[in-house]
Nucleic acid binder design. Sequence first.
DNA 1: TTTATATTGTCTCAATTTGTGACAATATAA
DNA 2: TTATATTGTCACAAATTGAGACAATATAAA
Lengths: 234, 234
Amino acid sequence: MDPKDYLPHIAYDSVIIGFSGDELHILIMEYHNTGLFALPGGFVHTTENLNDAVSRGLKERTGLANIYLEQFYTFGNAKRNKPAPMKKILEANGIGPEDNHWLLDRFISVAYYALINYKNVIPKPDALSDSCKWYSIDKLPKLIFDHADIVAKAIETLRDNLDRKLVGMNLLPKKFTMKELQQVYEAILGTKLRRTTFQRTMLASDILVRHEKQYSGGAHKAPFLYSFKKQKKI
Amino acid sequence: MDPKDYLPHIAYDSVIIGFSGDELHILIMEYHNTGLFALPGGFVHTTENLNDAVSRGLKERTGLANIYLEQFYTFGNAKRNKPAPMKKILEANGIGPEDNHWLLDRFISVAYYALINYKNVIPKPDALSDSCKWYSIDKLPKLIFDHADIVAKAIETLRDNLDRKLVGMNLLPKKFTMKELQQVYEAILGTKLRRTTFQRTMLASDILVRHEKQYSGGAHKAPFLYSFKKQKKI
DNA sequence: TTTATATTGTCTCAATTTGTGACAATATAA
DNA sequence: TTATATTGTCACAAATTGAGACAATATAAA
């Protein structure tokens, strides 16, 4: 990592959100031999679009590609970077503790979130990281810097956007039941929703296609499967 | 402006929105002897919080202080800065056309919008600028770089936030009539609203205090004056 | 002084949307 | 065969919104 290849003082962090069962999960990386946990992030090449850098970095660090990413806030407090944990990470990677390493500088971080289908994805850690794992949103490990704030703001934004953007689309497999869709909404909002009202609203909203009934594994009437209609271009 | 005082490649731009009569207006600066128009913006000191830099810069460039600013997007395309207009601005300020002046570099820009009471404010241009004027949102001059995109995104965000944040609060004088409030909403949304429904909704929302009737200048029944309740802290 | 005009505040009723429970249908387990 | 859990749909009540009507009233016009 030659500092000349990257824009100084500029970073990004991504909050990768997946859904499993009835909980939201977030992808967290652990750095080798440090016990330090962080959001997957990275830096921007000198002639690279910011958005492209984020896609590229996510691919490099987790193996995930073609993911819908949404920028939600830029964190710019002067003291958001603590030198101590970064030194620890550098040392664990064989980089000496010179006080003026560029990664110890102050960084502004542009934060993105992504919604992906948990089941399709087995994230793979990169060379820098020990592991790259899903954590339930209620049981995140302690994160470095202000990454906990970044996660909180991501969830807040997601909640606000829930009725305006088709977030369910990205968190579920192609075909899903009405119950699964409702569970996604409930996990994001953090509240229970009324079944009949939810079903009526979703059916009326004209965003779902109904398919044949599922061969259900449950001891009850088999539910329909649904998928999202292709988005109309406006 | 010593480049060592500022974070390289990082800028901010602010979309200052005021309301007058029935239109939204935006504050635009014109650079001396160039015919170039731009949003008021600036740079971040090396140890300064991003948010503080934006407040400071706005004060320096327009004389406006204590203004509620909301960050809404970070523009990071590699080619969003065009060297030609920036060279013109530098030359008009007596700075030679060296090809590697730091202001000709690529910049990522964090964009903020602010809502202010048009009537209370007479903006003053700074040394760099010829003028600092309000322009109706429908009649903006051609802006440099991607500043037209930044304005468009600001309005889009404002519209989305209209029902969740108390935007009217900042655009009107302390006391105002129901009609004025409705005009703010209409200007932001770009649509007409039904008078009776709007009035009923606003009164039911429990955010307004009703005061004595206005000594009206109009040839009709005098309207009540309203102000916003103090926000409860949650 | 009287009348006309424009806007305001409020009310009413219809139309629509949402809340809530009921109930039959049905896939599996007992 | 019966019991159980969940699903899809309906019916009705409650709440919200749409749309117009109308009296009140501050100024302008006569």
